[in-house]
């Protein structure tokens, strides 16, 4: 097991970094969705209809 880790250390580290990045992207996308942030990534501030999604009740 230890030999396997040593032999594939670079692969494990790079793959872990990649996994963290992808997980961060997915978590961020889910969080944005839950917060009602822009679904189109166009930036709600510039959208003339943003109040539809972000009305302050």
């Amino acid at each position: 097991m230890f030999d396997f880790i040593v032999q594939n250390l670079a692969t494990i580290i790079v793959f872990t970094i990649l996994l963290v990045i992808v997980a961060a992207i997915i978590i961020n996308m889910i969080r944005n969705k839950k917060l009602g942030k822009s679904s189109c990534s166009c930036g709600c501030k510039a959208c003339p209809m943003s109040d539809t999604c972000h009305s302050k009740k």
Partner: peptide
């Protein structure tokens, strides 16, 4: 910038995934 940035953001998120 607003339009361009949204384009870049999508490349770094949806397109990457």
């Amino acid at each position: 910038w607003e339009r361009g940035w949204s384009f870049i953001k999508r490349a770094g998120t949806v397109i990457l995934a």
